[in-house]
């Protein structure tokens, strides 16, 4: 049976926890708004780039590029986009569950975010590189990752590359998804940015495009750029997911702490009342014995 003092102490410690989780919830919700806006702002660019690529794809049938080369061979690279910090609900464990499905021997991992790198090290997978990205992902950070995997691919160290990340669907729903990155395969298949289901269907205009300076040069510059941008958009989506998930997790933690405080306070009051009744009883019994 805990004493009233024990319960008071517990109430105090739960209150402190609630205060911290509440503060984290506030921080996450303000960051979430920014991250969501950034993720949404990138979508028109992605849509336009997709339509440009779809339009020119029809005209550049015989165009080839090292990044489009399809190779037989099982060597596989996964870009794992996780978070740097924990306390964001099941986000990272959902991601790593997907990551475990890849074959241990033929897959190498490229990580963005510390949690993913820790997971790869703990499970003794092959880690090729670890990148960081900030709360507001920069295009340069995305370019670094993209350049690294493009080099791995063109050097023939891996035969295919895909990205595993958490797609931001809404504040309450984030889904781990994997998206193939390389080889590009057909030009038509290039998707700059993230498919969202409700994206408008691409229409090809059926026009014959001219290229200036030349098709090779323009597309040679356009393809790596499209990949860079795809990774950038993925980082934005991952960041929005992280902040949303953290906000929801912290909100739950705060609610639970509040409920706990309520229960403990009730218990404390009951115990206090029981003590008073007991003392009263003792006093009256003593008086009756004397009288």
């Amino acid at each position: 049976m805990p004493s009233t003092r024990d319960i008071r102490r517990r109430i105090k410690s739960v209150k402190n926890t609630a205060q911290i989780t509440k503060a984290m919830q506030m921080v996450a919700s303000s960051k979430m708004r920014k991250a969501q806006l950034a993720a949404l702002a990138g979508r028109p660019y992605a849509t336009l780039m997709n339509s440009v690529l779809a339009n020119v794809a029809a005209d550049a049938v015989d165009f080839t590029h090292p990044l489009m080369a399809k190779r037989e061979g099982g060597k596989h690279c996964v870009v794992l986009v996780s978070t740097d910090k924990g306390l964001c609900g099941a986000l990272n464990s959902n991601l790593t569950r997907e990551a475990l499905k890849f074959d241990k021997d033929t897959t190498i991992f490229v990580c963005a975010g510390k949690k993913g790198a820790q997971f790869v090290a703990r499970n003794k997978r092959n880690l090729a590189a670890e990148f960081t990205y900030k709360d507001a992902p920069l295009f340069a950070e995305a370019r670094a990752i993209s350049k690294f995997v493009q080099e791995l691919f063109t050097k023939g160290e891996v035969d295919s590359v895909e990205v595993l990340y958490t797609n931001f669907i809404s504040t309450l729903v984030q889904k781990p998804e994997s998206q193939p990155l390389l080889p590009i395969g057909e030009l038509k298949g290039v998707q700059a940015g993230v498919p969202h289901g409700n994206a408008p269907a691409l229409e090809t205009s059926g026009l014959e495009f001219q290229f200036e300076p030349g098709a090779d040069q323009v597309l040679g510059a356009l393809l790596p750029h499209a990949l860079n941008f795809q990774i950038y958009q993925i980082l934005l989506e991952a960041k929005a997911s992280e902040q949303s998930s953290r906000m929801v997790a912290m909100k739950n933690a705060t609610d639970n702490a509040k409920q706990l405080i309520k229960d403990l306070t009730l218990e404390y009051n009951k115990l206090r009342q029981a003590n008073i009744t007991k003392e009263l009883l003792e006093i009256t019994t003593a008086q009756m014995a004397l009288g």
Binding site: S205, E208, F209, E212, P213, A221, L222
Partner: peptide, 19 residues
């Protein structure tokens, strides 16, 4: 400003992709 110099684009221009 294209990579190969300034370009003026009017309506009905030929379809073109450039840097």
């Amino acid at each position: 400003p294209g990579v190969e110099g300034e370009m003026g684009i009017f309506p009905m221009h030929v379809p073109l992709l450039t840097q």
